[in-house]
Amino acid sequence: MTRTQDRTPIIRLTDITFGYPAAGPILHELNFSFYRNERIGLVAPNGSGKTTLFHLIMGLVKPVSGSVELFGTRMESEKIFARVRHRIGLLFQDADDQLFSPTVLEDVAFGPLNLGKSKKAAIDKSKETLAVLGLSGFEDRITIKLSGGEKRLVALATILAMDPEMLLLDEPTSGLDDATKHRLKSILRDLNLPYLLISHEFDFLKSTTDHIYTMNDGKILMDQELIIHSHEHAHVAGRQPHKHV
């Protein structure tokens, strides 16, 4: 890969405006570029259009105005989107939306099969992906009988089995217990994939992302990076449990 290709953003959003009639714009003239090897966190209040942003990138909804560019190509129609969509892996907020096949293996193999892989190649790829996520032996489990944490990890496997070049993670920790959160954390660190991650959990963001941005007024504020930090300070009675207001 040449250096110039390296500098082409995977995602380039230009002047994106999106909203529902009568409800005002959710996103307003939003500009955003995402480059290879970036791991970006996104924090914003509910209803600020984060999920919408992900759906716009995937071409699941159409912006009112503005343009979406993926891998240097302008996405002008569903046909063009359909061709590149699999190169970006979107993890949905609710794993039940993502897992619809009866068994785990079938669900993970769904993507590779759609990409034209043979049955054997798809099964091999699925088993390999499950193994990477520590889910070996889950192949014949029934998806509806998985726990919430297992569902999330299997949903991640269904995406990784398609060999995406980047991930969009929509609140991946919501509803997970600490052990699964920890597991997800180390998986994300080992993946070596760029990603854009929506989360409310600073602790999680701190250990999984390099930059954290916020959204406001329908824009991503790139010039106001959040810096998570901690201080040490001293005062009288500091040994007693106390609160700072």
């Binding site: 995937m58 969509r85 699999h86 949905f92 939306d97 769904f110 993507g111 099969l113 049955k119 398609m162």
Partner: peptide, 18 residues
């Protein structure tokens, strides 16, 4: 949402069974 998730994984209206 399920249909959106399926499209994200390359679904084009044809099912394969393993």
């Amino acid at each position: 949402r399920v249909y959106q998730a399926m499209r994200c994984r390359g679904f084009k209206g044809r099912f394969f069974t393993i």
